[in-house]
Amino acid sequence: MKNNDDTTHLIDETLIPKGQPFLSPVGYFEGLPTIIQRRIEGKDCEIRNTGFNEPEKYFATLPDRIILKVTTEEKEQNPVKQIGFINWTWVASVAATVVLTWGIINDQQNTLIKSNLTKQQWHIDNLSSTEIASILNKSDISEEELIKNISITRLNQQIEISSKEENEIINQLEETDITSEL
């Protein structure tokens, strides 16, 4: 409490004689060396005033811990920066070369496929339907389609047979009728 640098609140105004407005506050000069010392040091002097203290060797390790945290955080946040500008230029140029090469190869492949397709198209255009049919095997036609086609053919055949039989019966009946009439 004696170390209070601003002792204005301790002034008992009744003690100040009139006509001496520049009287120093009570206890000012006793505390002055401490105030000056505190202002010069500006370090741990406040510990003894507040009553607080810190763990042993706390300030000895604090700068290193802060530097470690700062550098670790920076590396985690910015891996690009970690590589460095020159190295990063190398990485970028290698990546660009890879992309460019892949693009060229891809383009060549596309041209090749296109040319093959044109050839195939030209070949098919020059084939007759019988030749195309001979090229196509069973797997070229889906099983479902095949079954459907077969069923329709059979149905048509059945209808044809049925209509033939019907005609025959009618004919027979007509003939019978005529005979009986006779």
Binding site: G42, K43, D44, E46, I47, T50, F52, E54, F59, L62, P63, D64, I66, I67, V70
Partner: peptide, 15 residues
Amino acid sequence: VFHQIVLKYQRRIYW
């Protein structure tokens, strides 16, 4: 340099 800055001001900032 930052180490020096921390060393210089750590106590004042801490307190």
